[in-house]
Each structure stands twice: as C-alpha cells, then as structure tokens.
C-alpha cells in the first residue's frame, strides 16, 4: 500500500477543503481500504468523514426519509421507518455483504463502491476503468457475471450495490455538498452511461461529498420486495437481483434490476408495459420481455437474461399476491 496522510474532518467545510484539493473521503473503508491494499486505489491523503454529524435517519415533511450519508448499512436496514414503509430497502441492504461489513459500511460509501470485476481488481490486467484506453479483457474473457444491459465495448462491469437497486426503485435523490454549494441528483441519473468513459462513474462534481440520500414519501406503498439470486446462499454479490415496489394506490409498480448493468437498472420499459393492462401473469411476462428486449448478453452470460425475466415475474406475483 502506498503511504498516505490521514486526518479526521472537524466540520463539513474542513472536509470539503480537503476533498477539493485531492484528498479522498474515508467512510467505513470496506471497499476503499481493500482496494488500497491491492494498489487499485492509491490516495495521497484520506479525510475521515465518519466524525461529521451526517449519521441518522429522519422523516421529511412529505412523509419520506432523509438518510444521512454516514449512516451505517446496519442502522439503515434496522430502522423501523425503513422496515415499515420501504421493506425492499431493508431487504436489499441485508442481502449484501456480511454482518461485520454492514456495521462498517456507510450509505454514501455504498453508492460510491467500485465494481467487483476481477480484471478491475487486479492491476496486472488492462482495464478501461483503472487505466482509460488500456482495453477491457472481460469482454473476450471471464464475464459470466458481467452486464447484459447498457454496457459498451469499453467496459461490461456491473455495479455491485444491492442497496442502490432498492433506492433507485424508490426514486431516491442523492444530496451532496461542494465548496461552491450543494446540489441534488436523482439516483437514476447518478451513474452516467458507460459509453467510452467507463472511468467516469458518477455525476458528482469534483470534490463533492455525499451528505444524504432522500427517499420521497409520495405515493409509496409498503408492498415492496427485494429478491437476489447469487452463486451461494449468502455473502456473495448478485448474479441478478430485483426490487419491486407498488405505488400508493397499488396501481403501478416500480421495478429495478441489479447485477445486470453498470448502474442499478430502473426498468422503465417494464413499468410502462404493466400500465397497459391488469396485473396478471401474462402481463408480468410481457413487461419483463419488453424490458429485456434491449439486453445484449455476452457469450458467457446469456443466462442472466432468462434469470432476470423469471425474477421480475416472480417478484411481481409476490407483491401483487
């Protein structure tokens, strides 16, 4: 690991000054410290933001929730308001990592975690995320767990977060601060398309610090469900996952997929298809097929298309039951 300077931010402005001059923000460290060990990340300076008063969850005037960025994954999943009104979010967080890692990891850090593509994680390989222009060995190599939607010839890596899949289904908004002021980005627009810039992973301005994630309260029903398929029963990243929530009147569904793209994939095409008819098994299948007609599987991951289709149908049946 490369040597680095470390200090704890004393207040938000102190953190932003450090961040604007090249320091990296340290949250739980579960991904960043690991990547520093392997040399994928090599910051000169870390500014520890867990001591800022950004932890905690509170209700917003519209009946939604404001989740502070340094809230741990554990505290998010255990929060009564999350479990009662956004159960798919609690389920998604609980489906990720292990008890120990969830106690460390923060909500802001979860959104910024890097892909678990094996080529990205190993600096002895080329990787367009790590070294733009060096190539993507995954596309002609080991890609059974790579993307089937939205990938480009430059990168087929997936976003690993479970939490973000549920958040994007609930129309979450990312709130951030910079020295020049703050801003908000809908999570659905937070991760840019891969295109020819896979190294550009978020829409955050340089030096920005995520301060909170806001869940709108409007029109959300507690009938939601997150379901994850993985290669072992626990403690593994998704091959495919799906979050489904019904709107307040039960009439329309929100659907998001994990493990299939460089970002949590909001299945807008499927949602539109569902609006065209009654909630029946035939309608669910048609909606899933409509969404996945855009899929372009690689030679080794075509199974994900079938898996995603069946998961969408199964979880829609579950929430409508």
């Amino acid at each position: 690991m490369k040597e680095f300077a470390y200090r704890r931010a004393t207040d938000l402005r102190d953190a932003l000054i450090a961040g604007s001059t090249g320091a990296r923000y340290l949250g739980g460290g579960t991904n960043l410290v690991d990547l520093m060990k392997s040399g994928v990340e090599a910051p000169d300076r870390l500014v520890d933001v867990r001591w800022l008063p950004l932890a905690g969850i509170r209700e917003t005037p519209d009946g939604g929730l404001l989740i502070g960025a340094t809230t741990t994954n554990s505290d998010l999943a255990a929060h009564p308001g999350v479990r009662r009104r956004y159960p798919a979010l609690s389920q998604a967080v609980l489906a990720g990592a292990s008890g120990q890692l969830r106690n460390m990891a923060t909500v802001g850090g979860n959104l910024l975690q890097r892909t678990r593509c094996g080529y990205f994680a190993d600096p002895s390989y080329a990787c367009n995320k790590r070294l733009p222009g060096s190539g993507c060995p995954a596309i002609a190599g080991q890609h059974h767990n790579h993307a089937v939607l939205g990938w480009s010839p430059h990168c087929a890596a997936t976003h690993p977060s479970d939490m973000a899949v549920a958040l994007v289904a609930f129309d979450a908004i990312v709130r951030y601060e910079t020295l020049d002021g703050g801003g908000e980005i809908p999570l659905e627009e937070f991760y840019p398309p891969v295109g020819d810039t896979p190294q550009r992973e978020t829409a955050l301005p340089p030096g920005a610090l995520i301060t909170a994630v806001v869940l709108p309260g409007s029109a959300v029903s507690p009938r939601s469900r997150y379901r994850k398929v993985r290669e072992r029963a626990s403690y593994a990243f998704a091959t495919v996952s799906v979050a489904v929530g019904l709107d307040g009147d039960g009439g329309s569904a929100r659907i998001a997929l994990g493990g299939v793209a460089s970002r949590p994939w909001r299945a807008r095409t499927a949602e539109s298809s569902l609006l065209a008819g009654p909630p029946t098994a035939d309608g669910f299948r048609a909606a899933a097929d409509a969404e996945l007609s855009a899929a372009r599987p690689l030679p080794g991951n075509g199974y994900k298309v079938t898996l995603a289709r069946n998961l969408i149908v199964a979880v829609l049946e579950e929430v409508h039951a």
Partner: peptide
C-alpha cells in the same frame, strides 16, 4: 484473507462486530 472476506479477524468496536483487517488503526 486480510480482505474482509473470511471473518477470522472479527473484533467488537464499541460493541459492534467489524473486520479489523479493513479497519485502519488510526480510524
């Protein structure tokens, strides 16, 4: 493993279990 994947380094930090291999001592 030294990568947070095996749990052999688990300790309690303020009563909560964490993996000490991904926790910086300064933190």
């Amino acid at each position: 493993c030294d990568h947070g994947q095996c749990g052999a380094c688990t300790v309690l930090l303020d009563g909560r279990r964490v993996v000490s291999c991904l926790t910086l001592a300064v933190a």
